[in-house]
């Protein structure tokens, strides 16, 4: 069964459609890049899958069942700017929130949850920062805390919205190694990604999106100049046609 199976999903904010008839399904155990210009609806797609914005039509299936029945299988890394980092809490506490979905009503995170959360912090290299108030972390460290929280969710399918924004090159490589580790465990990871230069290096599959779905498939097949032009329109310039490394003009 496919980890993510979406058919005919349309999403509109105030009647203005931002996603139209998106239909795709992805195979298990792949690292999948979601690529498209600003406002293409990448975040909206993830939110629609997770039931955070209503869909005007279409169906979403996670391993064959509606999302609501599969919450525990799904991990989520929101865009970093979506929360207030001045909230009075520390890194460990935020990562523990990844356990809340498993704990159930009226219960507190226990020793086991704390252990899982510490392991997750360790994995992203943030163990020493467990007690640090979250506003006193750098942007890249905050991003890693979010990643650790998703790891603590112990999910099978992960949705990550721009996890590389604000992280340095070394951290980015470390995160990619981590994602590959998840993949090796048979997990499926969908990542919204902006840097076209690294798409081929990072992702097995790529989803090209701009309100409609332009293409989905193995990266070497779909990540072509032709498809990129369809996705980005006139905003695409080519640094070097030969190595086929497209890059978006700012």
């Amino acid at each position: 069964m496919n980890p993510v199976d979406i058919s005919n999903v349309t999403v509109a904010y105030d009647r203005k459609p931002v996603l139209q008839e998106v239909t795709f399904n992805v195979p298990e155990g792949k690292l999948i890049g979601i690529v498209g210009p600003n406002g293409a609806g990448k975040s909206t797609l993830i939110k629609a899958i997770l039931g955070l914005v209503p869909t005007a039509s279409g169906t979403v299936r996670i391993y064959g069942k509606p999302y609501k029945a599969q919450r525990k299988l799904v991990g989520y890394v929101p865009q970093r700017g979506s929360v207030d980092w001045d909230f009075p809490t520390n890194a460990l506490d935020v990562v523990l929130m990844g356990r809340y979905g498993h704990i159930g009503w009226f219960k507190r995170p226990g020793k086991k949850d704390t252990k899982i959360a510490m392991q997750a912090l360790d994995k992203v290299g943030m163990k020493e920062y467990a007690d640090r108030q979250i506003s006193q972390l750098s942007g890249g460290q905050q991003q890693r805390v979010f990643l650790a929280r998703a790891l603590a969710q112990d999910a099978t399918v992960y949705f990550m919205d721009e996890p590389f924004v604000g992280v340095d090159a070394a951290t980015e490589k470390a995160i990619i190694a981590l994602l590959n580790e998840l993949k090796a465990q048979g997990k499926t990871v969908l990542v919204v990604h902006h840097d076209l230069q690294t798409v081929k290096e990072y992702f097995d599959w790529t989803l090209l999106l701009n309100k409609r779905q332009v293409a989905l498939g193995p990266t070497e097949e779909v990540f072509t100049i032709d498809n990129l032009q369809k996705t980005y329109g006139g905003r695409l310039a080519f640094l070097d046609q030969q190595v086929n490394q497209p890059f978006v003009q700012q």
Partner: peptide, 13 residues
């Protein structure tokens, strides 16, 4: 969690 990160809270039910 719903004060800190309502989207995440909604996502986990």
């Amino acid at each position: 969690i719903s004060s800190f990160d309502p989207a995440m809270a909604t996502a986990i039910g």
